[in-house]
C-alpha cells in the first residue's frame, strides 16, 4: 500500500502550495497517473479520503487521468504505446522495449477556495 505514501506526498505538495498561495480549502485535486506508474487508482481514492481527514483537503474530489505508457522498441526502432511492462512490441513482437513514458505521477492542479 505505497499509495498511502503517495497520497501523503500529494497532501505535502498541497500544503506547500497553500503556504505560498494563501488558500484555506481545497475542493478538487487533479492528478496525472502514468499507466506504467505502479499505482492502483482505487487505492489512491481510498487513501486520499483517509489521509486528508482533518486537513485543508478533507472532502475534496480526487480526479485522476492516465497518461499512456510509451516505449522505444530497440528491435524495430519505433516508438510504441504499451499498457503494461510485460508487453511485446505491437509492431514487431519483440520484447526489447525501453520505457520512455507513462511512469510519472504528477499533481497537475488543484481547485481551491481562499
Amino acid at each position: 500500500m505505497h499509495e498511502v505514501s503517495l497520497v501523503e506526498s500529494v497532501l505535502d505538495l498541497i500544503e506547500d502550495s497553500a503556504r505560498r498561495e494563501g488558500f484555506s480549502k481545497v475542493k478538487k485535486v487533479v492528478l496525472e497517473i502514468g499507466q506504467l506508474a505502479n499505482v492502483e487508482p482505487e487505492a489512491m481514492v481510498f487513501c486520499f479520503d483517509v489521509v486528508t481527514r482533518g486537513s485543508l483537503a478533507e472532502g475534496a474530489q480526487l480526479e485522476m487521468f492516465p497518461s499512456p505508457g510509451l516505449a522505444w522498441c530497440t528491435t524495430c526502432h519505433n516508438s510504441v504505446e504499451i499498457a503494461s511492462r510485460d508487453m511485446h512490441c505491437p509492431l514487431c513482437g519483440g520484447y526489447a522495449l525501453q520505457v520512455t513514458g507513462g511512469t510519472d505521477m504528477r499533481v497537475k492542479a488543484i481547485v481551491v477556495e481562499d
Partner: peptide
C-alpha cells in the same frame, strides 16, 4: 471565499 485553480505540476515523488 472564491474558487480558483492553482497549477501545481509537481511529481508526487518530488
Amino acid at each position: 471565499s472564491a474558487s480558483r485553480i492553482v497549477e501545481i505540476e509537481q511529481d508526487l515523488l518530488s
